[in-house]
Amino acid sequence: MLIAQQADGPLIRFTMEPLFEDTGFALAIMGVLVVFMALALVIAFITVLPHLAKRTAAQPVQTDVKPTAHDELAEETLVVIAAAVAETIRQRHRIVKIRGLTPEDLGWSFTGRLQHHQSHQVRGRTRR
């Protein structure tokens, strides 16, 4: 079927024949099935992964070492944070917990979320 004409031949030629060859429907269906099968196996593995991880996880070593002052936040830091919170909220409030970030907290997902909220507006019609 000729849809448009170019100087040296048709611009668009439409044919159904290739669909019924080995590289047509057969390949497409096989491709979709393999992708689904591979990711289904990944899902199965992910589902049992927590149990596997628990088994392989090393037992925590019992120590009677108490946290040193080095692990705790300095009193001055706590005062500064409390002052900043009071200045921001300007209402009666209670700070329940203040703790330093662990390496896990500093993961990509956390910083990614922060960057996302600080990044450009993707669309102009976004309500803010």
Binding site: R13, L19, L27, A28, G31, V32, V35, F36, A38
Partner: peptide, 17 residues
């Protein structure tokens, strides 16, 4: 996985063209 269906549908579309 579902989004990859688009890859193979377009593959079929390109074959038709």
């Amino acid at each position: 996985a579902a989004a990859q269906v688009g890859v193979f549908l377009t593959y079929l579309g390109a074959l038709c063209l």
